[in-house]
Lab assay of single mutants.
Amino acid sequence: PEDEKKAKEALKRANGDEDKAKEILRKLGVDPDRAEELLRRLR
Score class of each variant (00 low, 15 high):
1 P>Q: 14
1 P>H: 14
1 P>I: 14
1 P>L: 15
1 P>V: 13
1 P>D: 15
1 P>W: 15
1 P>Y: 14
2 E>I: 09
2 E>P: 09
2 E>M: 10
2 E>S: 13
2 E>R: 07
2 E>F: 10
2 E>A: 11
3 D>Y: 08
3 D>N: 05
3 D>G: 06
3 D>V: 07
4 E>L: 15
4 E>Q: 09
4 E>S: 07
4 E>G: 05
4 E>H: 10
5 K>T: 10
5 K>Q: 14
5 K>P: 05
6 K>M: 15
6 K>G: 04
6 K>N: 10
6 K>F: 13
6 K>L: 15
6 K>D: 06
6 K>Q: 13
6 K>P: 03
6 K>A: 13
6 K>W: 15
6 K>T: 11
7 A>E: 02
7 A>L: 07
7 A>V: 12
7 A>Q: 02
7 A>T: 05
8 K>G: 05
8 K>W: 15
8 K>L: 14
8 K>H: 10
9 E>Y: 13
9 E>I: 12
9 E>R: 09
9 E>T: 08
9 E>L: 11
10 A>F: 02
10 A>G: 01
10 A>W: 02
10 A>R: 01
10 A>Q: 01
10 A>I: 05
11 L>M: 10
11 L>H: 03
11 L>I: 06
11 L>K: 02
11 L>V: 03
11 L>G: 00
12 K>F: 13
12 K>P: 00
12 K>S: 10
12 K>N: 09
12 K>G: 06
13 R>L: 15
13 R>V: 11
13 R>I: 14
13 R>A: 15
13 R>M: 15
13 R>D: 09
13 R>C: 09
13 R>Y: 12
13 R>K: 12
13 R>S: 12
14 A>L: 02
14 A>F: 04
14 A>I: 02
14 A>G: 04
14 A>R: 02
15 N>D: 09
15 N>M: 11
15 N>W: 09
15 N>V: 04
15 N>A: 09
15 N>G: 12
16 G>R: 03
16 G>L: 03
16 G>Y: 11
16 G>H: 04
16 G>N: 06
16 G>W: 10
16 G>F: 08
16 G>K: 03
16 G>V: 01
17 D>S: 06
17 D>P: 01
17 D>G: 02
17 D>N: 12
17 D>H: 06
17 D>L: 04
17 D>E: 04
17 D>Y: 04
18 E>Q: 09
18 E>G: 06
18 E>T: 10
18 E>S: 08
18 E>H: 15
18 E>Y: 15
18 E>F: 15
19 D>N: 13
19 D>C: 10
19 D>W: 11
19 D>P: 06
19 D>I: 13
19 D>H: 12
19 D>K: 14
19 D>A: 15
20 K>G: 06
20 K>R: 11
20 K>H: 08
20 K>P: 01
20 K>Y: 10
20 K>D: 06
20 K>V: 14
20 K>Q: 11
20 K>A: 12
21 A>M: 04
21 A>F: 06
21 A>G: 02
22 K>Y: 13
22 K>N: 05
22 K>E: 03
22 K>V: 08
22 K>R: 14
22 K>A: 09
22 K>G: 04
22 K>W: 09
23 E>W: 05
23 E>Q: 09
23 E>V: 07
23 E>M: 08
23 E>P: 00
23 E>G: 06
23 E>A: 11
24 I>T: 04
24 I>F: 10
24 I>D: 04
24 I>S: 03
24 I>C: 05
24 I>K: 02
25 L>P: 00
25 L>E: 00
25 L>T: 00
25 L>K: 00
25 L>Y: 01
26 R>K: 13
26 R>V: 15
26 R>S: 11
26 R>H: 11
26 R>F: 11
27 K>M: 14
27 K>Y: 08
27 K>I: 11
27 K>Q: 15
27 K>W: 09
27 K>S: 14
28 L>P: 00
28 L>Q: 12
28 L>M: 15
28 L>H: 05
29 G>F: 02
29 G>Y: 01
29 G>I: 03
29 G>K: 03
29 G>L: 04
29 G>D: 03
29 G>N: 04
29 G>Q: 03
30 V>H: 03
30 V>R: 01
30 V>L: 11
30 V>W: 14
31 D>P: 15
31 D>A: 13
31 D>Y: 04
31 D>Q: 10
32 P>V: 08
32 P>G: 11
32 P>T: 09
32 P>E: 12
32 P>A: 12
33 D>Y: 10
33 D>A: 14
33 D>T: 12
33 D>V: 13
33 D>F: 13
33 D>H: 12
33 D>I: 13
33 D>E: 14
34 R>G: 04
34 R>W: 14
34 R>D: 08
34 R>Q: 09
34 R>E: 08
34 R>L: 13
34 R>K: 13
34 R>N: 06
35 A>M: 07
35 A>E: 01
35 A>G: 04
35 A>N: 01
35 A>P: 00
35 A>H: 03
36 E>R: 07
36 E>C: 10
36 E>H: 06
36 E>V: 07
36 E>T: 08
36 E>S: 08
36 E>P: 00
36 E>G: 06
36 E>F: 05
37 E>I: 09
37 E>T: 06
37 E>K: 07
38 L>G: 00
38 L>K: 00
38 L>E: 01
38 L>W: 05
39 L>A: 00
39 L>R: 00
39 L>N: 00
39 L>P: 00
40 R>A: 10
40 R>F: 05
40 R>G: 06
40 R>V: 06
40 R>S: 08
40 R>E: 08
41 R>W: 11
41 R>M: 12
41 R>S: 08
41 R>D: 06
41 R>H: 09
41 R>V: 05
41 R>Q: 11
41 R>F: 08
42 L>C: 04
42 L>E: 03
42 L>A: 05
42 L>P: 02
42 L>M: 07
42 L>Q: 03
42 L>G: 02
42 L>H: 03
43 R>A: 07
43 R>W: 05
43 R>Y: 06
43 R>K: 10
